[in-house]
């Protein structure tokens, strides 16, 4: 996702103006975070989300927000308040999201933003972790019998104009010395329509988007998303610089969910697991040691997250995986020991 130069400039000027809050604290002292203080005083966490992206953040029929980005904010709220509903979801356009984070209007930006260098160095943000590894992929008709993107030589490909997607496509075919015909459209909707009506052999965009578009097709099961990913789009939540404790809280909320999945702790068995003799599990659930204290939270912070929101795998399956309409394959988002790259440092 790209932003305009203007909004970058505004965000840059804003962070230059802002004095970063001192986040240092003496070793052994419980943490002090201005952001956390403000949130505890207000009683709600302000979370900037995408106004509508299936699987990531979207209001349902009743107006309740659902999605994997939404779950992350709910996890942080659960860790702070033991109540996942104490979140204000503020829909953000791509344009004003960074400014809103800098001005303190939102405390977390969980808006499927791609973690890039420029956003951390120039815009003064910090991405806490990657909660979804996305990347550009291809969708083709099943009856073409194509199993790899490398077999797409001579294919015609529908793509949205003027996006990094179009450039990545050109790079990929040039790197593999293959010929192709590009058919570009002004909007993603038109490109999908053209693909559905048979004007091109393949359609390309970010893989999560491919799955979301697939369910809109007349016969979703006639189409398959190829497993090759031709670009890196690590999506994750961001916080502003200058409050390291807050950065840690958001980061470890995600890591707690990943660690819980790895240790087999889930929404249903969390209470039971607290009696486990496994030291990893005991540390995660706050039965041993005092990891919560140094985040400025209670010791059962991770327990709260797991009981209210669930572990990473549960969140994934519920929102974008097999349990949802999108049915996105876990792919690289599998845990590191299951063949993916989702990896969390240990809690110890």
């Amino acid at each position: 996702m790209r932003t305009s130069i203007l909004s970058n400039a505004i965000a840059g000027a804003v962070c230059a103006l802002m004095l970063s809050a001192p986040g240092a604290f003496a070793q052994g002292q419980p943490a002090k975070s201005p952001t956390l203080d403000k949130i505890q005083k207000a009683g709600t966490l302000n979370c900037g989300v995408n106004p509508g992206l299936a699987g990531f953040s979207m209001p349902d029929d009743k107006g309740l927000w659902l999605g994997i980005d939404v779950d992350l904010c709910r996890a942080v709220a659960a860790a702070i308040f033991n109540d996942p509903t104490k979140v204000k979801f503020i829909p953000m356009t791509a344009k004003d999201r960074f400014t809103a984070l800098q001005t303190g209007e939102i405390d977390i930006l969980a808006r499927n933003g791609t973690w890039t260098m420029q956003r951390e160095t120039e815009l003064g943000l910090l991405f806490t972790a990657t909660n979804y590894y996305d990347g550009q992929g291809f969708m083709v008709r099943k009856k073409l019998n194509v199993t790899s993107a490398l077999e797409l030589s001579q294919a015609s490909i529908c793509v949205q104009q003027g996006t990094t997607t179009e450039l990545n496509l050109a790079d990929f075919f040039r790197a593999n010395n293959m010929k192709y015909e590009v058919i570009a459209f002004a909007t993603s909707n038109e490109a999908v329509k053209a693909y559905d009506s048979g004007r091109c052999d393949a359609f390309t965009t970010d893989a999560s988007g491919l799955y979301a578009e697939r369910v809109k097709l007349a016969n979703a099961n006639d189409h398959v998303v190829l497993s090759e990913i031709i670009s890196k789009e690590p999506l994750g939540p961001a916080v502003r610089q200058g409050d390291d404790i807050w950065f840690n809280i958001v980061k470890w909320a995600h890591f707690a969910m990943v660690n819980a999945e790895e240790l087999g702790v889930n929404k249903g068995n969390a209470d039971e697991q607290a009696k486990s003799i496994k030291p990893d599990v005991r540390r995660l659930l706050g039965v041993e040691n005092e990891f919560g204290k140094f985040l400025g939270l209670s010791n059962d912070w991770a327990m709260r997250i797991i009981k209210h929101v669930g572990n990473y795998g549960e969140s994934f399956e519920r929102n974008i995986g097999a349990g949802s309409r999108l049915r996105i394959d876990r792919g690289v988002n599998k845990l590191w020991n299951k063949g993916g790259i989702m990896y969390a440092p240990p809690i110890r």
Binding site: P51, G52, L53, A54, G55, M58, P59, D60, D61, A212, V215, K216, S324, R325, L326
Partner: peptide, 9 residues
């Protein structure tokens, strides 16, 4: 936003 819901899209 409603039209983006994968159940209905």
């Amino acid at each position: 936003t409603g039209r983006l819901d994968p159940v209905w899209a």
